[in-house]
Nucleic acid binder design. Structure first.
Lengths: 200, 200
DNA sequence: TCACAACTGAGACTGAGTGTCAGCTCGATC
DNA sequence: GATCGAGCTGACACTCAGTCTCAGTTGTGA
């Protein structure tokens, strides 16, 4: 999946990037995103200001740099689903591969979600990254349905599926991780699967 | 809908705000959002830098200040739909009240959408504003369905409906406004209404 | 070993956004 | 119609994010 040449340079680069992100996360989660400057982070991490911006596209990216990979993971998982499966089910299965990520460190995932939710600039940046998820997933889904990538129907299906993921994640977050994420996901997708009368 | 005390002060304030936004839009659409500084705008508009930030929360807001009202308009239109209507139809009708906005100045609307799409900071800011649409609409939809605002199902329905709106708008934009927006909207919502086999 | 490519810190620079302050204007009240 | 307070204004200084350049260093491949 990743495009990693895996020379010594690139490996140390990835390691340093992770270390810096970790240091940054500790400051952000302790004091709040806006109350920590880039200078604070680089001082704590022992790198120069210039290098920080070589590792991350911006301050937000030090928190959200992992988000890009998730979209690719969903798209890849979708590509692996059997061709006969209906779109909603295939997307649901592709998406619930993410549960492993949350199960590995639920407390950290919750704290991350809260920080993003309460920090406008982080929220905006994350939403923009999710637009890229949208495009990646649409490119896999469209041929599956025999439609073009920019067909309205493809866009709606992808958008609705990502809304389902988002709704489940948000509910999971507000319940402090107590409700079952997989169950929430299937409840969310069921809304999209039911026939017309989602009536009152 | 609006909370306008309508004293002389507030009316001139609104008028000035509109004028500044118009001047800003001319610069942005001509040179691109990032190539125009706030100083450029205030020089052209004949106000001080400080005043600019009193009228707009940020540079992006000079383009997107109207976006907030749209969410309120959708929520209000939804509240006015008959109680017996199913959720998808009610949302579709609520949303297609926006068509009047686009019909009034299609060329301007297209140009605006293009600028937002090609400018990351504008896109991010717009997406963040749409999160607020989400909340406003959920608050109207939830009681209609006899559910709480933070119920997963409510969030999914609102998110999916907004995805439908977005897909239709985007398709309309890429077709240079040639395809019929209302038709695109109904195609988009039909995907959400059909029974399970949106199969391959 | 050598030459090149990629990385680094240092520091100057641009531009967004905030806070303060002193002066002006609107508009209500006497 | 003079006055007083609230709200607006421009000027200006300040912080911080992000870009760019430059010179020195280190990994990489021949």
């Amino acid at each position: 999946m990743s495009t990693t040449p895996s020379t010594l340079r690139s490996r140390t680069r990835e390691a340093v990037r992770l270390q810096v992100a970790e240091v940054a996360w500790e400051l952000f989660s302790a004091r709040g995103f806006d109350a920590v400057t880039v200078d604070d982070v680089v001082a704590a991490a022992g790198i120069s200001r210039a290098s920080f911006f070589r590792y991350f596209a911006g301050k937000e990216d030090a928190v959200l740099f992992a988000v890009d990979a998730i979209g690719a993971q969903i798209a890849q998982a979708l590509a692996a689903r059997p061709a006969g499966e209906d779109a909603w089910t295939a997307l649901q299965r592709a998406v619930d591969g993410l549960e492993a990520l949350y199960r590995r460190d639920p407390a950290g995932a919750l704290a991350r979600m809260r920080l993003v939710d309460e920090t406008p600039s982080l929220l905006a940046s994350q939403l923009e990254k999710q637009v890229r998820w949208h495009r990646m997933i649409a490119e896999v889904l469209a041929p599956r349905l025999g439609l073009t990538t920019d067909d309205v129907r493809v866009e709606v299906i992808v958008g609705a599926a990502l809304s389902a993921l988002d709704a489940a994640r948000r509910r999971w977050s507000t319940s402090n991780g107590e409700e079952d994420l997989m169950l929430l996901l299937s409840q969310a997708f069921d809304v999209l699967r039911v026939p017309a009368p989602a009536l009152r």
